[in-house]
């Protein structure tokens, strides 16, 4: 079987799930993307991607508590699975490998 690839947006979301840990749910991730990456992102796009990643087994989810801010509705907290972590690492290494091909001159 060919190795599975992730799209750029999927990779960002997966990374954020790994990074935000107990605070990884739809709205929070969307906000992180907006504040850190300065990039407009739609809530529904985040949700759909999260579900897709869950289908692929890269993340898993459980219900978390609700807050006043969200009208008492429960959050769905996502956590990264081992295969998700492996995938993330593999991708990072691949990036680094590729990066090494770029002539160092230009940075200096």
């Amino acid at each position: 079987m060919a190795k599975e690839f992730l799209g750029e947006f999927e990779e960002i979301i997966l990374t954020l799930v790994a990074g935000l840990q107990e605070d990884a749910y739809g709205a929070a991730i969307a906000e992180e993307i907006e504040t850190r990456l300065k990039r407009e992102v739609n809530l529904s796009a985040v949700h759909v991607t999260l579900y897709r990643l869950e289908d692929k087994g890269l993340i898993k989810s459980k219900f978390g508590g609700g807050t006043n801010e969200r009208g008492g509705r429960k959050k769905r907290i996502f956590t990264i699975t081992n295969s998700g972590l492996a995938m993330l690492k593999a991708m990072k290494e691949a990036r680094v490998d590729l990066w090494k091909l770029v002539p160092q001159l230009q940075i200096a």
Binding site: A27, E69, R73
Partner: peptide, 15 residues
Amino acid sequence: LYEEIEGDLIQQFSR
């Protein structure tokens, strides 16, 4: 999925 989506929407609205 309804509850979490609704919650996220409301949270977004509050912010």
